[in-house]
Simulated scan of single mutants.
Amino acid sequence: MAGKQIATAKLPNYQKLKVKFPSSGPAAIQLVESQHKLYFEAGDNIEVLCQDSGMRGCWFRCKILRVSEKCLKVQYDDILDCDGPEKLEEWIPSYRVANPDKLGTRCTGRLTVRPRPLEDSSDCSIEVGAAVDAWWSDGWWEGFVVEYDVFGSGHLHIYFPGENRTLEIERKNVRISRDWIDDKWVEVKVKKCIKSSISSSSSCDSTSSSMF
């Protein structure tokens, strides 16, 4: 395609059995391949999930500069290159499955690369246990609301399962969290027992801290 490059990310292919039951005679069994694809173009605005220690569960905003069959060259919106004043650029996998989350609330098989959410959900009502992304330290961190309107300040206490920590965040810096699966945004279920889940996680991680 002239003037455009497209990167295709293929999800794992699994063979499925299709069984036909005729009116007479033995059943016929046919192997059927399942394929799903994600398409990215140079110039697309996306988010990339970090899973490195200290930044687990953080989505960074970036723009695609170049594409290849298996990788994307991106420029980060909010991260500067340590060797200069320019924005950081690097190659990342166009297909990588995110690690399972500790609380088991996220969609299985989601990727670490996704389109940037189009709508701002900062005005949506939020309840305790709601899955949210909190803007902090140059990225959107996946978390759950533990408490809202802290001491009448309008702030929220957000628990970040990726790092097993809690932080007080201004309401304006919080958005509803969703997963990108099969080319659509999927709601993340409310974790109503979030406080007991935090206690359980903390008891298994002696190095966790209550605040950043």
Rank of each mutant, 00 (worst) to 15 (best):
L65C: 06
S200W: 07
R66S: 14
G43Y: 11
K37S: 07
C124A: 14
N99F: 13
I29G: 05
W135E: 04
A2R: 06
E86N: 15
C62M: 11
I6S: 04
P26H: 03
L49C: 14
W59V: 03
V145D: 00
K191E: 00
P93M: 03
S125E: 13
K73E: 12
D101E: 05
W140D: 01
F21M: 14
E86V: 09
A2I: 04
K16Y: 11
C82G: 08
D44I: 10
L49K: 13
D120S: 09
I46Y: 04
Y14P: 08
K195L: 12
S202H: 01
A98S: 15
D205R: 03
S24D: 07
G84T: 06
L65Y: 01
I169A: 01
D81S: 15
A7C: 06
Y159I: 03
S53F: 14
P100E: 05
S177C: 09
R114A: 13
W180K: 07
S206R: 06
D183S: 14
S201Q: 05
S153C: 12
L65W: 01
I169K: 00
K18D: 02
V48E: 00
V67D: 01
L72W: 03
N99E: 15
G109I: 14
P12A: 11
R106C: 02
D44T: 09
Y39E: 03
G54E: 01
R96E: 04
T105Q: 02
F144S: 00
S68G: 14
L88N: 05
L65N: 02
S153V: 14
F160P: 00
K10S: 08
I64G: 00
S24G: 11
A42W: 06
K70C: 11
A130I: 05
C107N: 03
G143K: 00
A42S: 15
I6C: 07
C193W: 07
T105F: 04
A42R: 12
R61T: 15
T8C: 04
N13M: 11
K73V: 10
R61K: 15
R116Y: 12
R56Q: 14
K102C: 10
I79V: 14
F151L: 08
R114H: 11
D179H: 05
D149Q: 06
D52E: 15
S68V: 13
S153F: 15
I198F: 02
D77H: 13
I79K: 02
L111W: 08
E33Q: 06
C71P: 03
E47P: 07
K10F: 07
V186M: 08
S121A: 11
V146E: 02
E90H: 12
L72I: 10
S53A: 15
E163C: 05
D183Q: 12
W141S: 01
D77A: 14
F60W: 15
V74R: 01
E142Y: 03
P161F: 02
V174E: 00
S206D: 03
S23M: 12
R116H: 12
A7Y: 05
E86P: 07
R96T: 06
S122G: 04
